[in-house]
């Protein structure tokens, strides 16, 4: 709660939180909020590429679909992609980091070297290659992103675990006979949680952005999904005439990623109080 209060006292972070919460609400109620929910898959050729008007505040796209509706409907896929990719990456990265940080020996060493291998290639290139290899599509893109993002969690958790392993209270716990899983799960993990949380929040923004690039390059979401990156990609042929076509999905990406990044930034400040003391 104190953390939340700190967060809210920081206007920029509060803005981030507001953006993220707003997106989550929109994602949850998308079908009810969208003026034309069936435009997720419908095509209305006679009203294609209409500029913004009272009827279509964001204009219509190349198949005559309402862009506002599609931006609203696309929020859900963006949030789902971000959350599931980050969760999957955490599921791999956190245990790897915990194990490798706690134990010495060749297994830990190998795990961290594997992490290095993954970190040695820029995520986008790796995700692109992976995405293309396993029949392109949103699921593939998500798997590819999770497979390229887990090393960041592994690194973060590894560092935290290494730091805590030498800590006095951990020695004490081991001394009174606490089991390793118990120490790791109940004591080390909670202490690493703030770092993980910050990583995760930043990761959400990063994921949305990379998924959009993948969609843009044709390795992400499949049409007719109202995916934002895909919409920008589809809009390319109609530029600069239909300026509204890429603009609104692009802004949606910007706002949501901004929200996650601002929130992450705020959380980082909360987690690292030294920077807050100031003045």
């Amino acid at each position: 709660m104190t953390a939340l209060r700190h967060l809210l006292r920081d206007p920029v972070a509060a803005l981030g939180l507001a953006l993220v919460l707003f997106a989550i609400v929109v994602a949850l109620f998308a079908p009810w909020l969208a003026p034309y929910p069936e435009d997720a898959f419908e095509s209305r050729l006679l009203q294609r590429l209409k500029p913004p008007s009272a009827e279509f505040p964001f204009g219509t796209d190349n198949l005559g679909r309402d862009i506002l509706s599609r931006v609203i409907l696309g929020t859900r896929s963006a949030v789902v992609v971000a959350v599931s990719v980050v969760l999957a990456a955490m599921l791999i990265g956190v245990p790897v980091g915990l194990w490798a940080g706690w134990r010495e020996g060749w297994v830990s060493e190998t795990l961290m070297r594997v992490t290095d291998v993954f970190l040695a290639v820029p995520q986008l290139i790796l995700a692109l290659a992976l995405g293309q290899l396993m029949a392109p599509g949103l699921t593939t893109a998500m798997v590819a992103l999770a497979l390229t993002y887990w090393p960041f969690f592994a690194r973060t958790v590894h560092a935290e675990t290494r730091r805590l392993r030498g800590a006095l209270f951990v020695d004490a716990l081991a001394g009174i006979g606490a089991s390793t899983p118990r120490i790791l799960l109940l004591h080390v993990l909670p202490n690493a949680a703030p770092a993980i949380l910050v990583r995760a929040t930043i990761g959400m923004g990063f994921t949305i952005l990379t998924a959009a690039i993948l969609g843009f390059l044709g390795v992400g979401a499949a049409p007719p999904s109202p995916d934002w990156g895909l919409a920008v990609a589809e809009a390319r042929q109609h530029l600069p005439e239909a300026w509204w076509f890429p603009t609104f999905p692009g802004l949606a990406i910007l706002l949501l990623v901004l929200g996650f990044n601002l929130l992450g930034d705020g959380l980082r400040d909360v987690a690292d109080p030294r920077l807050r003391r100031g003045r």
Partner: peptide, 10 residues
Amino acid sequence: VGGLAIASFW
């Protein structure tokens, strides 16, 4: 933070 949030292709 906005700089990190803009999709480069856009």
